[in-house]
Design a protein around this nucleic acid. Sequence first.
DNA 1: ATAAATAAAGATAAATTTGTCTTTAATTTA
DNA 2: TAAATTAAAGACAAATTTATCTTTATTTAT
Lengths: 152, 152
Amino acid sequence: MFSKSTEYALRATIFIAQKSSAEMKLGIKVISEATDSPPSFTAKILQALTRDNKIVSSVRGPNGGFYMTEKAKKLPVRSILDAMGEDEVLERCILGLNQCSEIQPCPMHSQYKLIKKQLILLFETKTIQQLASEIKDGEVFINNNKTSLKLD
Amino acid sequence: MFSKSTEYALRATIFIAQKSSAEMKLGIKVISEATDSPPSFTAKILQALTRDNKIVSSVRGPNGGFYMTEKAKKLPVRSILDAMGEDEVLERCILGLNQCSEIQPCPMHSQYKLIKKQLILLFETKTIQQLASEIKDGEVFINNNKTSLKLD
DNA sequence: ATAAATAAAGATAAATTTGTCTTTAATTTA
DNA sequence: TAAATTAAAGACAAATTTATCTTTATTTAT
């Protein structure tokens, strides 16, 4: 569905939303381990998300790291796709036709459009915070090994 | 959603299903033009679909080309994904987690699973033939420029 | 048989994505 | 001010995907 970059971006952002605040920043290492993502690559991706402080914020230096503002946490999940330049994935024709539309539909268009609609609705109505809160609530995981962040 | 290879495979197969029969075979050039796909690459992809005559059949030599049997036309669209080795796309976790499941769900799992279910249902119940027949029926297209195959 | 037409197979190349590493800049603390 | 810590930026490398081209095999028609 999404590129690896975007998958990492989604996981990292949800994790940061759950664990961070302006007072509690998270380093690359912690984030990449908690989300089963390669550290250097995650750093690259966070740069994109941090651009203009749109999704994620960061500060350098000791006690620095990444965090999200309460405002940013309320953004729809779709804004992560936008920041990664992969928002058109949701809108694309499932057969890859550029001109596919209601007036020039592909053979799957009429069947797929309802599914597409739900996908878009999901990404536009769910906030990052809502997803993050599920991790706190119950048995929901953002990596492959059921580990959570050890805060000491 | 899918790789370009799979998009080309879907378009080519639907087109072949619509236009061909054992008596009326189609050459690479015709297929690639009708589906807005690069000819050499389309040839490569058709090799995969032709393997074991699973989806598409072919014969070499003059008056040769690609075609589908009536039996093959009745296969579910999903079988094209299978042949392309991309069937797991439908099942994958939307956040890219290998271990995501009902017992170890990711934060989007509960929301996405209904959409995923519909996607799988679509690809498993729709036959190649059903999609192909839509092109005949009405204003449905398999390329970007509303052109259809000129038979002479 | 020979020639022509066609797909199959395989080598190669280009482009993109994924990933790492090194250097630089910013911030904090001592 | 100096040292330590952290992200930012950018160069580079590896892997994968996309695409092309050439040669080979098969089939048909002459």
